[in-house]
Write a protein that binds this DNA or RNA. Sequence first.
DNA 1: TTAAAAGTTTGAATATAATTCAAATCATGA
DNA 2: TCATGATTTGAATTATATTCAAACTTTTAA
Lengths: 151, 151
Amino acid sequence: MKKLRREIIELLKAGNCTPRISTIASKLHSRSSTIHYNIKQLEKESAIRSYRAVFDYKKIDEGFCSFVLISLASGSYKDPDKIAEILSKYPQVESVDIITGRWELIIKVRTANMDEYYEFAKNLVAIGGVDKTETLNSIRQVKSEFTRAIN
Amino acid sequence: MKKLRREIIELLKAGNCTPRISTIASKLHSRSSTIHYNIKQLEKESAIRSYRAVFDYKKIDEGFCSFVLISLASGSYKDPDKIAEILSKYPQVESVDIITGRWELIIKVRTANMDEYYEFAKNLVAIGGVDKTETLNSIRQVKSEFTRAIN
DNA sequence: TTAAAAGTTTGAATATAATTCAAATCATGA
DNA sequence: TCATGATTTGAATTATATTCAAACTTTTAA
């Protein structure tokens, strides 16, 4: 992919988008200035965090998606936050949740392919405090947090 | 929450946003018309699917988040796609992935609170073909799809 | 119950930004 | 090298966001 396109994608992932006030206004049969005011309020109370693009990940070389369940070694058991912080730093890691039950963490990872995933996974074991992991590879994303698949 | 705000949020979840071309142009030391052209290309090849808002889910009454691992009864085992389709329809279901391993599906569910989650979970067992489920409740989202706040 | 305050809507004016397009430039492969 | 398609550019145009004071509505507290 062209360098410029990749750079644009990275900026669109991080935000750099904005609401279509007039479109929303007409869909809700309201005035632009009203919608503008209400959106600014939602932003002010941080209910809206940002605006970003949604991608077809296969088309931007991030087609391989896995969920990794992680249980921590007893030493760091008391502080899953720290491990979570470390994991959050990786660009391949889309989400990190601390959870109840048999596992302490679940992370969602996106890479171009299995090889790249394997490269990433090596980091996981290298992080001290990680005891066991179980990887669930997504073979089809039927719905993602952003949009439904159009088959 | 005000009805209008809720309606705005629903529209912002579904899209109704647009890239900030001039911001991107200046960040990349490029011209607006160049960025415009390249973004249109990305849209044309469907690499970009849409633009939408990212929320602080606690602030929009969707603060309770769970991952549900699902294994299917042997009858429908051959067609997890169908169950996945059904699950995708629920607005509480943020993502549906068909996965490899001990489970067939993993879904991410957002509700206002545990009670609402329980109401939703009753639907799960009612769907024929679902054998076992295991729920992982997120007690803290350390990282989610968003990374940056509003400019 | 009522008056004041706080919050919201409105329309018109203004400021910004997106879009268009033809010409120029660049990249590619025959 | 030439020819073709892809990309970039700048200027002109169009569309949209933003601002703001006034009107209106809802909430608060006395």
